[in-house]
């Protein structure tokens, strides 16, 4: 399966982009040429130069350095969101799918309720309730997204519950915990990887969107969505300010989505035989 993935040039490219972005984010203090917070109002909207590779913004701050520091909230908070979503979704989904009966009914009705609200509205409502803060955005995203995962994972779990190897485990008296962690989790992990990589793109967009609306990361912290928000004020006079963070978001989200597609192809048993 992994070999299949590593043979695919698109998958390699996507993984390269994601990995490179992550590394740049982690080592931002070493890589960045300037302090992302240092402003020089006389030098605002400067063009690309050796000192400022991508020019400066409306306060004369280095755009390139801000982009690098912006990776941290953008990429890592979205990964945190996905981790929380998947964690909650897996626990709920497996519990519902494996034990069935009353537990299943209760969890799935809660999921039905969660899924009947439009997700953006719920996030706005939660942020409005808890206050404007990036932590609340992450909590709200997890809160709205877990239900969807729980439903997908429940279906996968039901599929594997009736497989003979699970029946055998039950008949010889392996504990439920053993069956769930050793049989169920590895089996659904493959399907989960596809969903997760597709949805990381969604999480990045979500955090950027809310920062753009001024509900997520607050100024002066660099974040791609927030940078877009600041740049939109000068969209007519200095349109190039929007291009850099805009392209960065598109490329990163695109990389995650394509990676999800490639993972799905690699996991498709029919594709393997070709």
């Amino acid at each position: 399966m992994l070999q299949q993935l590593f043979k695919n040039p698109v998958a390699l490219l996507c993984m390269g982009i994601v990995l490179l972005t992550a590394l740049l984010g982690i080592f931002a203090p070493l890589v960045a040429p300037n302090d992302p917070y240092a402003n020089d109002i006389l030098n605002k909207f400067a063009g690309p130069s050796w000192q400022f590779p991508l020019g400066t913004d409306q306060l004369g701050r280095c755009v390139f350095s801000r982009m690098l520091y912006g990776i941290r909230p953008t990429l890592f908070l979205s990964l945190l969101t996905m981790l929380g979503t998947i964690g909650l979704g897996v626990v709920m989904g497996i519990t519902a799918g494996y034990f069935r009966g009353t537990v299943d009914e209760i969890i799935m009705r809660v999921v039905d309720v969660m899924l009947s609200f439009p997700s953006q509205i719920i996030i706005l409502a939660v942020v409005a309730l808890l206050g404007v803060d990036i932590r609340n955005v992450v909590i709200a995203s997890i809160f709205i997204k877990w239900a969807w995962y729980a439903r997908m994972i429940r279906t996968a779990t039901i599929k594997y519950t009736n497989m003979n190897f699970v029946l055998f485990s039950r008949s010889i008296g392996s504990g439920n915990f053993y069956i769930l962690t050793r049989h169920m989790l590895p089996c659904i992990a493959a399907e989960l990887a596809v969903l997760a990589s597709l949805d990381t793109g969604w999480a990045i967009l979500n955090i950027s969107t809310l920062s753009f609306l001024g509900l997520g990361v607050q100024a002066p912290t660099p974040e791609w969505g927030a940078m877009l928000n600041e740049a939109k004020n000068v969209m007519v006079s200095n349109p190039e300010q929007m291009i850099v963070p805009g392209i960065a978001v598109v490329v990163l989200v695109g990389a995650f989505n394509m990676l999800g597609d490639c993972l799905r192809d690699a996991l498709d048993p029919k594709a393997v035989r070709q």
Binding site: M163, N164, F165, L167, F168, S171, I172, H183, P186, C187
Partner: peptide, 14 residues
């Protein structure tokens, strides 16, 4: 102990 009919699904492929 039990042995099932369908050997393809009776062992975890992983």
């Amino acid at each position: 102990s039990v042995v099932f009919q369908d050997y393809t699904s009776s062992a975890n492929p992983r």
